[in-house]
Write a protein that binds this DNA or RNA. Structure first.
Lengths: 159, 159
DNA sequence: CCATTATGGTTTCTAGGGAAACCTTCGTCA
DNA sequence: TGACGAAGGTTTCCCTAGAAACCATAATGG
């Protein structure tokens, strides 16, 4: 047994606690909630951060590709990009080959900001999963990857 | 190594993929998304289902306790209860001892419905985590419990 | 015993994201 | 080449949930 049983057994009986998905959401909500709060202090939403990160780390990013990889609709992405644009962290330039397409890029300010946000993300992950040993962390990562693989999940999670 | 490396290594390099939280959200989003879609076919939201389940499985449920256990604000819970009430799945009766307090209970229709929804939840969990062996499932559950324990997470996850 | 504070629940306002309609531009094919 | 469908992006509408203001009632304490 891995965990502190007395604590958990004290909880109100609920058949759903036998679901792995239950624990998965519980933990996932907490870790992303804590990250969202950290970003909030800088007036940045998780979606904005994910978009910024994708723009900084994928080749030739466009709104459509972002929507695909983030698992958001194009409408939603459009609004997120508006925000990033208003904050002068990204630039949108229309493609020469296809005037429907926009290429997205980080501005100088965006390039300065991104590593700071990445550091926050690193710290959040580190702090949260430090409750596990290195070996347990590797096991957990492996199991999650196996699930993602089995179900062909490819979307970068946003919320 | 647990997973299919060639598949994952073909992904665009992104430093965040080293975060366990990244994989956690990715997988969690997928499992709860698939569950949400299953409920959607019956015009039921995840929040409604969680509330219904709590009402059916906790002693003397009240809106305030629900808000606590679900990690939602009381305002949000109030609206969810309005929906369940409109569908005639729950009843609200004000307490004799404290007229501010409402006790929540399932109606006959609610009692009939709940097991069906629970079966959907069971099926969803089962189907998704079948990609892991029984032993891996136990390991995963243990690791998630350990994290929830370490961080004193007690809220039933909603979305 | 009354004033103040705390608590339970609802309502209002706002922000974020999906769905779908919309506009523009590109590709196809007759 | 011109019509039609597909694709990229934006806008509009709607729904959900949080924040905060609000109302009613209970508890506290002077």
């Amino acid at each position: 047994m891995v965990s502190n049983d007395t604590f958990w057994n004290s909880r109100v009986a609920n058949p759903l606690e036998s679901h792995i998905g239950y624990w998965l959401r519980m933990v996932s909500n907490q870790v992303s909630g804590s990250f969202a709060r950290a970003l909030q202090e800088r007036q940045i939403s998780v979606a904005e951060w994910v978009a910024l990160n994708q723009i900084g780390n994928t080749p030739d990013p466009t709104p459509a590709r972002l929507a695909d990889s983030m698992g958001m609709t194009r409408g939603a992405v459009s609004k997120v990009l508006d925000k990033l644009d208003a904050k002068n962290w990204i630039a949108r330039t229309t493609s020469d080959q296809d005037s429907r397409v926009q290429f997205l890029s980080l501005t100088a300010a965006g390039r300065r900001l991104l590593p700071q946000l990445t550091a926050i993300a690193d710290g959040n992950d580190e702090r949260f999963f430090n409750a596990l040993t290195k070996s347990e962390q590797a096991t957990l990562r492996g199991l999650l990857r196996k699930l993602a693989d089995a179900h062909h999940i490819t979307q970068t999670p946003v919320e």
